[in-house]
Write a protein that binds this DNA or RNA. Structure first.
Lengths: 348, 348
DNA sequence: TTGAAAGCGCTAACAG
DNA sequence: CTGTTAGCGCTTTCAA
């Protein structure tokens, strides 16, 4: 009964994949029995099940996921769009997404937009064609721009690390306003009065929120918000360097620096050192994100930690909820930021 | 003729996806004409093509990739297995893979093994079920262990950043022996005689190769290979710290440090600073990889650069070659390492 | 409990 | 140039 040569070869030399049909024949049962044995084990008699298992094993059968998905309308794939995996903030988040997805039997297609909004459309279309079951999306620019694209799709989606005013799509975020508020208050508590704020790109809501938190902290502590102490960078190391050099060139005085992300802040710190300014003796510095680099740099950077890994995990759980419950509305999740004090601005 | 409500809704409220059938009806042609118009534009008269395009547009039709792939036996997906995206060496490589894949119309499924060899089997099986067109693989441990798994699959594959003795599977690597040789010679050239080598995990061929290069450089320069100067780490920052602390605790003297990767080397440098050892005045330090961190650290790290991004690109081109030409054998590619001299061990 | 058969959405012979 | 049709490999009614 069992054939001697397990694999059949076609001309090219590649082994032809074993199909459910051959398993059925080999086990002496019908196709549907094999399918049932695989998917609904209970509904097949023990004897036949055994025979099927044996056949599967002997033929080294692997169900064709494409056919399966085509039929079942479930691909067990989640599409993940992020700006750039090379940006040190994202790898941890991606790990969170990947690990959690795997835990629940899902896999991810990873796409980097590299900050190009038009790429988002391409990837979204791709996801539709690939029939992904859900989409986790971290947009590159203004969320508004991407929103219409997203809303066209009937695929469940979650927005990650980007806040949205309306509640049309669930989001996973950190309270950026609060994080910046905490950092600024910390600096104020250390007696700082002229805190330089290096903001991020103003298309990002996160940037605006952080700027807001900074201003709020100043105001609440009856400190003036000096426009010349608010500068902008592009979230890169070089951007931070440039921002600080400009400030220094303009002879604007400050007694502390708070950067809207760690990379810029580190860049700024580098310039501070170059100009012989002591950290934290002269200038205290606080960043935002808590990337690995922050703790390894000299001096180690005080920063506002975002739970990137957990955010990734949460996004997956949320998308799974959206996939399985047919509910229209899924509540968003806001994580708490956490101030990590290190050498660049020690705790009290 | 055109229906007024574009999308049909099923009970749940989700729009049903438009199929080729509906496009055909809407355009008043057969489904094969639609298919031809999409895939082989030349073979359809201009008039019908126009009508099809119009219908596709009006119905907002998106071909179902699953059905397509099932029929055509091409998924346009490449499976990528790496140890850990959080390891700073990999993101650039992944970008290279992702960007190049995208350029050629492919997409990637990303899987982290987290160093677990058994995970590799899971992902490989997954790839088979998902019918990926090719696999790019960076194994976690000994390549030998994973080799039998890989060879079972009839899917084209490329091994990335891992050297293989036999030529059964094409690889993309950097000449690790040469890189380590260059770094060691550089240090010797600066008059160093007792160069501490922090090796990586000895299951990895890359580690062994680098160790080899180190020894070769010493031997060729008539310097003794002192076993006590060879220590091991796990490629992590903490691993490097620990390795160096042990060496110091054992009162082993050295005048330079060469680490098998940047993270460990940075960790070692940290310990050096803690012990008040001047870099490069007292001890010179060289790393391996040239991760972003290396250039940003103080002092900036002299290191052997691996072209991670280009390696990722090359792996994709290679896998594409393997997919398209039915050739059994694809030549491997070996990149040249490059010594980048910075503050921790300046050039001459 | 098991099998026959329909069909998921698409591609590509093949026939006209 | 265009349409008819037979599957790709699987899941899932529906009957037996």
């Amino acid at each position: 009964m069992p054939r001697s040569n397990i694999k059949t070869f076609r001309k090219g030399g590649l082994p032809i994949k074993v199909t459910i049909k051959e398993v059925a024949k080999h086990a002496g049962v019908s196709i549907s029995t094999v399918s049932l044995a695989i998917n609904k084990k209970e509904r097949v008699s023990e004897e036949l099940r055994q025979r099927v298992v044996k056949a599967i094993d002997e033929l080294n059968y692997r169900p064709n996921g494409l056919a399966r998905s085509l039929k079942s309308k479930k691909s067990k794939v989640i599409g993940l769009i992020i700006p750039d995996i090379v940006n040190p903030f994202f790898p941890l988040m991606v790990r969170g997404v990947g690990d959690t997805a795997k835990r629940f039997g899902y896999n991810i297609i990873l796409c980097n937009t590299d900050g190009e909004v038009k790429e988002e459309a391409t990837f979204l279309r791709l996801f539709e064609e690939k029939c992904v079951d859900g989409i986790i999306f971290t947009c590159a620019g203004r969320i508004k721009k991407s929103l219409s694209l997203l809303n066209e799709l009937s695929i469940p989606k979650v927005i990650l690390d980007r806040r949205l005013d309306d509640l049309s799509i669930p989001t996973v975020t950190v309270d950026n306003t609060k994080g910046a508020y905490m950092a600024t208050c910390h600096l104020i508590g250390k007696g700082k009065q002229r805190i330089l704020f290096i903001s991020g790109p103003d298309q990002l809501q996160s940037s605006l929120d952080r700027l807001n938190g900074y201003q709020q902290a100043l105001t609440e502590n009856r400190l003036a918000v000096h426009p010349e102490l608010i500068t902008y960078g592009d979230f890169s190391f070089e951007g931070g360097q440039k921002a600080l050099k400009d400030v220094i060139a303009n002879k604007i005085s400050f007694d502390a620096v708070f950067g809207a992300n760690d990379m810029m802040t580190l860049g700024a710190m580098m310039v501070l050192s170059e100009f012989g300014l002591d950290i934290p003796g002269g200038i205290e510095v606080v960043g935002y994100d808590d990337i690995l680099l922050a703790s390894l740099f000299k001096p180690a950077l005080t920063t506002v930690r975002q739970p990137a890994y957990e955010m990734g995990c949460e996004a997956v759980k949320m998308i799974l909820r959206a996939i399985h419950s047919k509910k229209t509305w899924i509540p968003s999740k806001v994580f708490e930021p956490q101030l990590i004090t290190r050498e660049s601005s020690p705790g009290n």
